[in-house]
Amino acid sequence: MTKRRAHKSISETRSAAVAKGIISVVLILYSFIAIYLIGNSILNAFKTKPDLIANTFGWPNAFVLENFRIVLVEDGFMRNLINSLLLVTMGTALLVAFSSTVSYGLSMYTFRGRGFLSNYFTIGLMFPIQLGILPLFIILKWLNLVNSLFGLALIYAANMSFSVVVFSRFFRGFEHALLEAARIDGANDFQSFIFLVIPIMKPVVFTVALLNFIMIWNDFYLPLVFLTNSANRTLTLGIYNYTADFLSNWNKVFAGVAVALAPIIVIYFFFSERIVTGLTTGSVKG
């Protein structure tokens, strides 16, 4: 793909340039909504309660950490934060492990039923997991995994169709000669996967992990349904509990939001291009 195209052609009249300028300005103004909502929430987390009531939409009089202490220590948000981290780590690790090996097996070997299996693994793109919630509940009950972070992580890992597509696309361009060389050196298939393939696929693993990290960290519905015990609640559920009764939690809710939002904003700041390309390579047929 060429980086820059010559867009300044003779056909680009003055009025078109003006129109484009206006669009830019409008969209830049529109972007202030996001900046304001995010910035204001984070700033409000540092205000004392009286400051917050008198001055909800402005700059804090002084930066105090009291709200964070109340929320994290007294209200148990630390528990929610740890739960979210555990869930994200387990879910992402399981998902990457299962989906990368499945894609590798499907892409690098020829065998009967390969086409059928490829379709089988992508059909999950069409079936939203929400529609299987009740049977999932029963299956988890049989396995004694209701109200367990690990049980929920397994569900995220099973939702692997998108990741299988992304990994398969990566393996399609994989150099088979490398594997031949490894085999001549005496490595079996699993050894070459671990010592040869895994180091090469680090970038795509990172992309898949990033996308699923964000998805699991932010998910609301599955934790709402499967984590009913307050000791297992994730951050999104903690925030929901505050907002459901926000007037009595007015000073705390901002600190809770700041805790959940800050890591995502930092990740997005550094990896926004990666996130976008990851999402679109899994979606557009190339």
Partner: peptide
């Protein structure tokens, strides 16, 4: 995993 937690 996919069969038990997604398709079934």
């Amino acid at each position: 995993i996919y069969t038990v937690f997604m398709i079934v």
